[in-house]
Structure formats: C-alpha cells, structure tokens
Amino acid sequence: MAGRNDSGASGKKSSDITNDLQIFNTENLQSNMKVIYYSRTFLSIIGGVIAGILGFTGLTGFIFYFLIMAITSVGLMAKAKFSVQSYFDSWNRILLDGFLGGLMSFVLFWTFAYDIVHIF
C-alpha cells in the first residue's frame, strides 16, 4: 500500500496504566493520520475502479465501498500491530477518519470505470 510504510514513525507509547495521561507527540500523530488519509484515498480510488470494472450497480457498489473501508481499517490495525492506543489517541481515527472524503473519489472512479466498460 502506498505510503503505509512510514507508519512506523509512530507516536510515543502512551505507557500509562495507573492514570490516563495523554503522552503523544503531536507531529507523529499527525503523520500517522496523514498515512491513514492517504491509504484511504488510494484504496477508495482503486476500489472505485474495481467496482466499476466488475459492474456493480446501486447498493452493491456502496456495500463494496464499506467492505473496502473495513478492510483498510483491519489493514491499518494490523500495521499498528493491533495496539491502536500506542499510535492513535482514539479508535475513531482508524475506523472513521477519511471515510466520507474517500466516498466522492470512489463514486467518481466507479462511475468512470463503469461507463467505460459497461455503458457504451
């Protein structure tokens, strides 16, 4: 996946059990979020092209988008070695961030590929 490799520039480990202190390096956190954004955009474009070529219409395509995003989330989690708390400040970052932003790209490329392959 493009750009996912530098996810290793991780935030400091929030090493606290006794009292919940947020010890995050802001820059690293932002870089991680940027990686998430990039991988989501990339996958939504690729997913759009795939959905268009396979000829999904209507609800099927959107379900495919959700599926792609779920796979991305799982992939990001695997990249974070399933210890999300040490890289991000909340679960929502991995699960939801960039979800709607990718939808527009997905719809555009879905339409594009679908039209080229199936309509004409």
């Binding site: 527009m104 790209s105 339409t111």
Partner: peptide
C-alpha cells in the same frame, strides 16, 4: 444519466483525492 457539463462538476469535486495523492 449525466450530462457532460455535470460530469465536469463531478470531476472538479471528486478529483481532489487523486490530486492529494
């Protein structure tokens, strides 16, 4: 069905993600 002018608008908004990549 999408007219060509509206396809232009769709492109205008939807390509933002591609550009950021």
């Amino acid at each position: 069905y999408v007219s060509s002018r509206s396809w232009y608008f769709l492109n205008l908004f939807g390509l933002r993600g591609l550009f950021s990549l």
